[in-house]
Design a protein around this nucleic acid. Sequence first.
DNA 1: CGACCATTTGATATGGATCAAGCGATGTGG
DNA 2: CCACATCGCTTGATCCATATCAAATGGTCG
Lengths: 236, 236
Amino acid sequence: MLTQTAIRSNSNHQFASARAATPVLHRMTGDSERGSLGETMQLMGATMSYPRNTEIFGENEPADYVYKVVSGAVRTYKILTDGRRQVGSFYLPGDIFGLQFADEHVFSAEAITDTKVVVIKRSALTSLAGRDASVSKELLNLTSRELQRMQDRVLLLVKSAQERVASFLLEMAERACANNIVELPMSRQDIADYLGLTIETVSRTLTCRETSCTIEVPSSRRIVLRNRTALNRLNA
Amino acid sequence: MLTQTAIRSNSNHQFASARAATPVLHRMTGDSERGSLGETMQLMGATMSYPRNTEIFGENEPADYVYKVVSGAVRTYKILTDGRRQVGSFYLPGDIFGLQFADEHVFSAEAITDTKVVVIKRSALTSLAGRDASVSKELLNLTSRELQRMQDRVLLLVKSAQERVASFLLEMAERACANNIVELPMSRQDIADYLGLTIETVSRTLTCRETSCTIEVPSSRRIVLRNRTALNRLNA
DNA sequence: CGACCATTTGATATGGATCAAGCGATGTGG
DNA sequence: CCACATCGCTTGATCCATATCAAATGGTCG
């Protein structure tokens, strides 16, 4: 439990500075927001691009901004004292992140693939919330949903490896799925660190599901769900 | 992983109906709220009593109320499909619970010991929040803090048994400690279900810490912290 | 005192981690 | 265009932390 092959994430911070604005207005696929907040952010915020594996913000940095994914994918994570990495969440297009209302970020955030986000000052958002009850309501809703997701994580983390992986696939299917084909932007290591397992276990579990014809894995980042019922059963 | 000695929580629902009002105004020890919300609830809400092990609300019931613990202690939990129980959170005097902004409760809630809570209609709270920006801000703060706690839980659940128990003791020490003496309202089973371990492992881990003089366990519900530094080290 | 329950302690089993090697895709330099 | 290094992933063998099974102990209430 205590040792694990050290730190594997290799962020190249040299790219972390952003290229400037040109707001992007097309609406992406994610469903993380129905209300005005997403649009508000896209109107008021600046678009920034982050190449693959670059840092968006770091743990303990002041949490001055809120982000919305336009394209690509983001992971938040924390390096534990023993060197292991725990992934907090994955964010896909449409998702809003950086909402933690602490002064400092608790997690770091990195682009998983080349990613565009819109950024807005938290202060702008909170002052807007002070004037507009609907904005503040939406902030609360978003935070509640995030809380909900974290509660689900807690439930997930006490289950067996099979169950965790099944849950993960179903979760991703909810969020980024075109007729049962799930495209995973993240590596096995990311998945493992998200589920609290090792890459070996994730890999083995997937091949096991494949053998039982529950899924197909045509390429490592693409998974076809053959039998959702079976996955749901595992999901417990 | 899949089997576990079935369902151990023995709620006697016959007591679940509440004795009526008589609002209690004295402020309790918990620190879950600094702002006006706690006071507002105590002024507007009704006080209810729940004997030990009775249900306060059930999973899938409409989430119409928000609760504040006046005295006693509360656990929220969920029974998983395989019969295991996962404890979501413990709430101590001063803590507010039932905040989830879903229409239905995701967890059930039970009194751990004889417990008094004040109850307020969620609708009253949200309409108040619509009028008063400071209330809505506080709701957001409370929810954020709950989110924060859940994130900590996630980090906790990927650690070793030693670390989980150490973290738990330190968490409880933060919340219900008089000069290093922690009074635990909950059973070993509650702790185990909270930490995602078995009672045996929790018990063994505690005796191990006791042997190493990090803690003392004069009675099973009372733990004296002898060496916080050592606990913090384990906490990782 | 005796029944009951929570907790501790002991012996054994097992799921997933760890260690180690192989494999396929991608990229790079000659 | 091919040899070769690299990287991400898979597969295999072994080990260990924690679960499971079982029994002893202790505390509480009639």
